[in-house]
Amino acid sequence: AQASVVANQLIPINTRLTLVMMRSEVVTPVGIPAEDIPALVSMQVNRAVPLGTTLMPDMVKGYA
C-alpha cells in the first residue's frame, strides 16, 4: 500500500516543514506520497495541521 505523509506534531499555520514534523504512514484517504517528504522540507503549510493529520496537496503552499 502507498504510504502518505502524516503530521508528527501540531504544525502551526505558515510553518516551514522540517523532517521531524513528518512521518510516513499507510492511511485512507491517501495524501501526499511519502517519497515526496524530501521535497516538502522548507515548504509552508497554509493551515494548522493537527498531530496525526494526513497532509493533502492543498495544505502545502507551492506543492500542488
Rank of each mutant, 00 (worst) to 15 (best):
V26R: 04
I32S: 00
I32M: 03
V6I: 14
R23K: 12
Y63F: 06
V30C: 05
D36I: 08
A48N: 13
P38T: 10
G31Q: 02
D58E: 10
T53K: 13
A39F: 13
T28M: 10
P33G: 06
M59Y: 09
V49Q: 02
A48M: 13
A64K: 14
S24T: 15
T18P: 00
V49D: 01
P12C: 06
M22G: 00
Y63M: 04
A64C: 05
I37Y: 03
V41R: 08
P12K: 09
T53P: 01
G52T: 02
N46P: 03
V41G: 02
P50T: 12
V41C: 06
V6T: 06
V20N: 11
T53V: 10
M21H: 07
V49F: 03
S24K: 10
T53N: 13
S42Q: 08
Y63I: 04
T54Y: 02
A7W: 02
D36G: 11
V27Q: 04
D36E: 15
I11V: 07
G62W: 06
G31W: 02
A3C: 14
L10I: 15
V45Y: 00
D36C: 07
L40V: 08
V49H: 02
S4N: 02
Q44R: 13
M56R: 10
S4A: 03
P57A: 15
M22L: 13
M56V: 08
T54C: 04
A64S: 15
K61T: 13
D58G: 13
I13E: 08
I11R: 00
A34M: 11
D58C: 13
L51C: 06
Q9K: 12
G62N: 08
V5R: 02
M22W: 02
R16L: 13
P12S: 11
A39R: 15
V30P: 12
E35V: 13
L51H: 13
P29S: 03
A7H: 01
L17N: 00
V27K: 06
L40M: 09
N46Y: 13
T28G: 05
E25K: 08
A3K: 06
D36R: 15
R23Q: 04
A39H: 14
I11M: 05
P12D: 08
T18C: 04
A7F: 02
V45M: 14
T54P: 08
L51I: 12
A1L: 12
L51N: 14
A1E: 15
P29G: 03
M22F: 07
P29V: 09
M59W: 14
T15P: 00
T54A: 11
L10R: 08
M21I: 03
P33I: 12
G62F: 12
N14G: 13
V60Y: 01
P38R: 09
L40E: 00
D58T: 11
L10V: 14
V27Y: 02
L40I: 15
V6E: 02
Q44M: 15
A48T: 14
E25W: 07
N14S: 14
S4M: 02
A34C: 05
S24N: 08
M21T: 03
I11F: 02
P38V: 10
Y63T: 03
Y63P: 03
S42L: 11
N14H: 14
V41Y: 12
A34Q: 09
L55M: 10
L51W: 15
I13P: 10
M22K: 00
K61Q: 12
R47I: 10
P12M: 09
L19N: 05
A3L: 13
M21P: 00
L55A: 00
P29N: 05
V45T: 10
Q2N: 12
Q44H: 15
R16N: 07
L55P: 01
K61M: 12
T15A: 12
S24L: 04
L17M: 10
P33A: 07
P33K: 12
V60E: 01
A7T: 13
R23P: 01
N8G: 13
N46F: 12
Y63Q: 04
